[in-house]
């Protein structure tokens, strides 16, 4: 069984939202020109993930999943058989969008200074696919407790934060390099992200299940990492 720490570390590195799943790419590419704005957007993403994923987890487990409504009345068979999972996409989206809206209003009212710094990023986040992606992954992977789901949310957020701050820092430096003119801006950012993605793939080699390993698996675990790409000729 995965521990909460496993889930957390995995979400930051080997299952990084940007480099492994390409989620949240659009704002990642658009808002990574300077480190300062990247930090702002990254922090906002962490925060929104931290709030929306647990809310969606509760919704999923106590409202939408087949049999999830059983808590209302354990003896009511009709409630136990109710399956509202067809609504989950809509519900997740509604939760994300309304929480972003709510946070925006609250921050504007009670912390105008923070709003000045974060404000323009908040509406952007509602359309950031990494937020909805995290909700869908959470539902797909069936985390057993809300703690695990939250660890996953924070981990994903931190992973996204690291990715956008790193690319912004590189882009600030690249500005002084002699990049071929047609490649400047977007082009070089794509290629840099690709190279960073390849680097991040090495984290796939982390074996999270090491304590359960038996003799048979020791031999094969050396093969498990996906970092060695051009290995043997095998059937495609």
């Amino acid at each position: 069984m995965e521990t909460t720490l496993d889930i957390f570390v995995k979400a930051i590195f080997s299952e990084n939202m940007i480099f492994a799943y390409f989620l949240g790419m659009c704002s990642y590419l658009a808002v990574s020109k300077t480190v300062k704005t990247a930090v702002g957007l990254g922090a906002a993403v962490i925060f929104v993930l931290l709030v929306t994923v647990p809310v969606n987890y509760l919704l999923e487990n106590y409202l939408l999943k087949e049999g999830a409504l059983a808590w209302i009345d354990p003896n009511n068979q009709a409630l136990a058989d109710m399956d509202l999972s067809f609504l989950s996409f809509i519900m997740f989206i509604a939760v994300v969008a309304s929480i972003v809206q709510l946070v925006e209003m609250l921050v504007e009212k009670f912390a105008p200074a923070l709003y000045g710094a974060l404000g323009i990023f908040l509406p952007l986040i509602a359309v950031n696919c990494s937020i909805l992606g995290a909700a869908l992954f959470m539902s797909e992977r069936q985390y057993s407790t809300i703690g695990d789901a939250t660890a996953f949310a924070v981990g994903s957020g931190i992973g996204w934060f690291i990715a956008i701050v790193a690319i912004a820092a590189i882009r600030e430096k690249v500005r002084y390099s002699n990049v071929p003119a047609p490649l400047r801006g977007l082009g070089i950012t794509f290629i840099l992200t690709g190279l960073m993605g390849i680097a991040f793939m090495s984290f796939m080699g982390i074996d999270y299940k090491s304590e359960k390993k038996d003799d048979a698996k020791v031999v094969t675990s050396q093969l498990a990492p996906n970092n060695n790409t051009n290995t043997n000729k095998l059937p495609e």
Partner: peptide, 17 residues
């Protein structure tokens, strides 16, 4: 591997621009 998609798009942008 997924990162190569980024690099291919990067090259397309290069050609286009």
């Amino acid at each position: 591997l997924p990162p190569m998609a980024l690099i291919v798009v990067g090259i397309i942008i290069w050609v286009q621009r």
